[in-house]
Design a protein around this nucleic acid. Structure first.
Length: 579
DNA sequence: TGCGGCTATTG
DNA sequence: CACAATAGCCGCAG
């Protein structure tokens, strides 16, 4: 294994690196004058170490961001925060949380910075030059940035990392011993992938997604008209949009189309009675009255105007023509990546604005039927694994169930989501009959989750059931909430495992394509978008597929009937040119 | 001002 | 219309 080198970076103070033998080295951000500091030599030192093949060890993604900002693109790392979220679940993974967990301290006793008053003077604060206070917790002042105030402090801050990493290794070994997870090798693969994904996130934030502002503004204009020139002008334009709907009603109808209640009474006035005003419900009533059509069109424009309109472009597209959001390597539940700024839910109509830069192309690749294939892998169902040898695995399943392909598909999806009604539920019996191992795997997760027990993915990520995210959303009765927990758990072991495979794939792709001058510019759960010099596009395509096979070999459990994974890959000039 | 509900989009 | 996410606005409580 590569040598672990602890690192802490501050753009002003500089960086400290500590080799595994304990040798510390300080790298100054040389100050040439009071206003500017030169970080290039510091970046050079760090880059040399990186090229030597070390595995960086750091507290959390803040270090990854700092390094990327310096121009260093770390190749290997161990991110304590990312591994902590994998081990513990939840979304908090700051140094104080990681430290408390690995030292067996109650997280509710983590201290926060208190305003200085007469009473706090008497408390024994110990030596403020040490990172750990008398209460055993890391000092909140250090967490908040006091660790950067001197070279000595930075070094003490970085020295804490080694024992914490060792403690995480032990906890990973315990996790690997669980019946539901893979081996230590699988679990460490996940830990590496979770860590490296933080670097990808830092790069996605730094580099952004190529966005053609002119095209983007034209698309917006197609929905909502021209850009308002003043607040007063905006009011006029808004009224015009509203009038297109209200014109279908009797004179003098003034109501707020943004209020579902008022829309309901609007519809009632033309003889339409609906329990809610969702688009799929109104869709069926388009022919009933012209106002329905006008309303649906207004909704579409309103959505663009408020969420993906001029304001969105102004806020998130930089002068360099890159669309940027904040990225998280793993959400609090099953461990998928998340992104802000609409990067994960951009309407397809906006995708023509995602355009490769001159001399470049996008290589876009998405994993085919990733969740059922992952189910076949993690459940060890050999018959389902055999179905993955088909490019469309629903076809052989449909054959076995003696139903249509579409029925087979909704049945499989329904089984993974916990659906109990509709066409999928009818075909469920066939699935139980033909693929009992996979179905039992899902049912065990469902029952365990219903009982409030935490789950673990194949790669060793903890799925917490104690969290209040389930009972918070549906305040129904106890049984309904248990059923919701069951559906959540049933899905989380599949979705979470798919996220692990995806990240393993993504970090291998990143590593392989970097020498070609290509980089990942978007991660979308089962899809990668790569920005590459046009001359090397074909090479990137080959590397993308090779990386998938390698990721599957590292991540998936060994099986007599190997599970096949496949990617649909294309070279395109703009995002909308695919699918 | 904060929060639940409703709505819409994506995988 | 089941699983996950972000994000906007409305209506209501405090």
């Amino acid at each position: 294994m590569a040598e672990l080198v602890a690192v802490a970076v501050d753009p002003v103070q500089g960086a400290v690196t500590i080799r595994s033998d304990g040798d510390a080295e300080h790298h100054s951000a040389q100050h040439h004058d009071a206003q500017h500091h030169d970080t290039t030599s510091m970046a050079h030192h760090l880059g040399r170490l990186d090229e030597a093949g070390v595995r960086w060890l750091w507290w959390n993604a803040a270090t990854a961001r700092a390094l990327v900002t310096l121009g260093v693109r770390p190749r290997r790392c161990w991110d304590l925060g990312a591994v902590h979220r994998m081990l513990v679940g939840g979304s908090s993974s700051g140094p104080e949380v990681v430290w408390a967990h690995l030292n067996g301290l109650d997280p509710s006793t983590i201290p926060t910075i208190q305003p200085v008053d007469l009473f706090s003077q008497s408390i024994d604060a110990g030596d403020p030059e040490t990172p750990v206070g008398p209460d055993g917790h890391v000092r909140p002042e250090w967490v908040e940035g006091a660790w950067t105030s001197s070279h000595d402090r930075m070094e003490r801050w970085a020295r804490l990392l080694f024992t914490l990493q060792a403690a995480q290794e032990r906890e990973l070994a315990e996790r690997a011993a669980l019946e539901s997870t893979g081996t230590m090798s699988h679990v460490r693969t996940t830990a590496f992938a979770e860590s490296a994904t933080e670097v990808i996130c830092a790069e996605l934030e730094h580099d952004g997604l190529p966005f053609d502002r002119t095209v983007g503004e034209k698309i917006v204009a197609g929905f909502v008209g021209r850009r308002p020139t003043s607040p007063g002008d905006e009011t006029v334009l808004l009224a015009a949009l509203d009038r297109a709907v209200l014109a279908h009603l009797p004179e003098g109808s003034h109501l707020d189309l943004r209020s579902p209640d008022q829309v309901k009474s609007l519809l009632r006035r033309v003889g339409i009675e609906v329990p809610d005003t969702r688009a799929w419900r109104l869709e069926a009533l388009r022919d009933t009255h012209p106002v329905v059509d006008a309303l649906l069109e207004w909704r579409r424009a309103e959505r663009i105007r408020t969420t993906f309109g001029y304001g969105w472009i102004d806020e998130h597209v930089g002068a360099d023509g890159r669309l940027r959001g904040r990225w998280s390597g793993s959400d609090g539940s099953a461990g998928r990546m998340t992104a802000t700024a609409g990067l994960h839910n951009m309407p397809s109509e906006m995708r023509p604005a995602i355009v490769a830069e001159p001399g470049h192309v996008f290589v876009r690749a998405d994993l085919g039927q990733i969740e059922p294939r992952v189910l076949a892998a993690v459940s060890g169902d050999l018959k389902l694994a055999a179905a993955t040898h088909d490019a469309d695995m629903y076809a052989p399943i449909a054959e076995r169930l003696r139903v249509g392909r579409d029925i087979a598909k909704v049945a499989v999806l329904g089984a993974m989501y916990g659906q109990t009604t509709g066409k999928g539920a009818e075909a469920l019996h066939g699935l139980e009959r033909e693929y009992p191992i996979a179905m039992n795997h899902l049912r065990r997760a469902d029952e365990s989750a219903q009982g409030g027990h935490d789950l673990a993915t194949h790669g060793g990520r903890r799925i917490t059931m104690s969290s209040d995210h389930v009972d918070g959303m549906s305040s129904g009765d106890v049984r309904a909430r248990a059923a919701a927990r069951g559906r959540y758990g049933r899905n989380a072991i599949v979705q979470g495992a798919a996220a692990e495979l995806f990240k393993t794939w993504a970090i291998l792709v990143r590593a392989r394509i970097a020498p070609l001058g290509a980089g990942i510019v978007l991660c979308l759960h089962d899809e990668l978008v790569i920005h590459a010099p046009a001359a090397c596009a074909d090479d990137v395509v080959v590397l993308v597929d090779a990386s998938l096979q390698e990721a599957a070999a590292r991540w998936a459990p060994p099986s007599e009937v190997p599970v096949h994974f496949l990617a649909d890959t294309s070279i395109i000039g703009r995002w909308s040119d695919a699918k």
